[in-house]
């Protein structure tokens, strides 16, 4: 799997290079790494952990927030020899994006069908 960003993507979207880093000393071999996500919390941490665990090449995946007053989340990944920690991360993120995309489509299709109770008048106020 290629890890390069295409020129077009680079032009279109500003890449925040400080967002993700590899925690020093955790990537002894490509199959294991702890990634540090800046300004992320349980929202992405736990969802990503779930997506990583859904990959059968991932032996271990977990996340932690080392300190409550620092806005960063660590994600630990260990994989089999068939892949690398980085590629598992890419796959997890892609799977999560696919899932979100389908949820939006299903939601909008259901909304368009209009088979639900609609309350015009708001009784709360």
């Amino acid at each position: 799997m290629s890890t390069s960003v295409s020129r077009m993507d680079e032009d279109q979207i500003e890449v925040d290079t400080g967002k993700v880093s590899v925690v020093p000393g955790t990537m002894i071999e490509p199959q294991c790494a702890t990634f540090c996500l800046q300004d992320e919390d349980h929202t992405l941490g736990n969802a990503l952990r779930w997506a990583l665990m859904k990959n059968s090449e991932v032996d271990f995946a977990s996340y932690s927030i080392p300190h409550p007053s620092e806005a960063r989340t660590n994600v630990r990944i260990q994989t089999s020899d068939n892949t690398t920690a980085a590629d598992a991360m890419y796959k997890g993120l892609d799977d999560l994006a696919d899932l979100c995309d389908h949820v939006i489509q299903a939601f909008q299709a259901e909304l368009a069908k209009g088979e639900f109770e609609y309350e015009e008048e708001e009784n709360a106020f």
Partner: peptide, 10 residues
């Protein structure tokens, strides 16, 4: 979020 993290990791 997934896109941002992916591009940044790359």
């Amino acid at each position: 979020k997934t896109g941002t993290v992916k591009r940044s990791l790359q």
